[in-house]
Design a protein around this nucleic acid. Structure first.
Length: 286
DNA sequence: CCGTTAACCTGAGAGC
DNA sequence: TGCTCTCAGGTTAACG
């Protein structure tokens, strides 16, 4: 499901819902996520008070006292739902546009005093991990590249990372160890804004093109967050609201349509790079 | 080290 | 209706 903007939206609404609240009970229905849920998962979380909810690239980090952490990743299809006890039946906490949550993929439930948080994930590419000190938490993320908003994400940083790469720029930007938080949609969008052919190799990029990538990674993510993320298929925030950035897509999923750029007569084509769909305008992306 | 591919899963939608 | 096929906001082990 989610790239950085969608995870950020989930984090914001989750934080609002659970910060300083106590987990009363944990029920797990299916431990077989991408990584098997740790045996002590329920016991570790039970009766813990949430001190903070933060985000590191596409991961959400829940902090408890004594430097204990629970992190999770939503994979492709993970969603978080909040269900309030009293209005259970009429809340718009739907999934796949249905009014009621299908129980089948509700793998984890966290019970609070007057609501519960549900983790639902049909494809089970998402996962949860526990850490009992800050050092282990940081070690887990040590190879992750900076997010586009990070101060470390500078021209010099990116030049050094890609100047010798023979890999195409699209896959370079999808590499979380080089730059973290981007996924297939936003990389397509960023390369369109930057007028760069996604097939172009890292080594072939000009200084100007690298400046553009930096500029537009920040811009596209900022816009996406402002619009509440992109809701295609199954993304919703914890309150069940849909994002609307999908209406702002310049290139993603616009196969066969006309290029939006002024005076460009190009048509948008679709092809695959490493099994992921790429969209580009053959005329203005060079 | 680098780059590429397959694999992990389920469900929606298209085409027949 | 129902079958088969393709595709999906991600990551990563295994290979050459």
């Amino acid at each position: 499901m989610p790239e950085l903007p969608e995870v950020e939206i989930v984090k914001q609404s989750l934080k609002k819902a659970i910060k300083y609240k106590k987990i009363r009970k944990v029920i797990v229905k299916n431990r077989n996520l991408r990584f098997k849920l740790p045996k002590n998962f329920e016991k570790t979380l039970q009766n813990k008070i949430i001190l903070n909810v933060t985000r590191i690239s596409k991961y959400i980090v829940i902090k408890f006292k004594s430097d204990t952490y629970c992190i999770f990743h939503l994979g492709m299809s993970g969603t978080i739902h909040m269900v309030k006890k009293k209005i259970n039946k009429i809340t718009n906490l739907s999934f796949y546009q249905k009014k009621q949550l299908p129980n089948k993929h509700n793998h984890i439930r966290l019970f609070f005093s007057n609501f519960k948080i549900i983790y639902n994930d049909p494809r089970r590419f998402g996962f949860f991990k526990l850490f009992n000190n800050t050092n282990d938490l940081n070690l887990y993320f040590k190879n992750l590249g900076p997010e586009p908003f990070n101060k470390k994400f500078t021209f010099n940083y990116l030049v050094n990372k890609i100047k010798n790469k023979k890999k195409n720029i699209k896959n370079i930007l999808l590499d979380q160890n080089i730059i973290s938080g981007l996924g297939n949609i936003y990389v397509n969008e960023i390369l369109f804004y930057s007028k760069i052919d996604p097939k172009k190799k890292g080594v072939e990029l000009s200084k100007d093109e690298i400046h553009k990538i930096i500029k537009y990674s920040k811009l596209v993510l900022k816009l996406a967050i402002k619009f509440g993320g992109s809701s295609i298929r199954d993304f919703k925030s914890t309150e069940g609201k849909q994002g609307s950035f999908q209406k702002e897509f310049k290139i993603y999923s616009r196969n066969g349509e006309n290029c939006y750029r002024n005076n460009c007569k190009g048509k948008i084509i679709k092809f695959f790079q490493t099994n992921r769909s790429t969209y580009m305008c053959e005329i203005c992306q060079k």
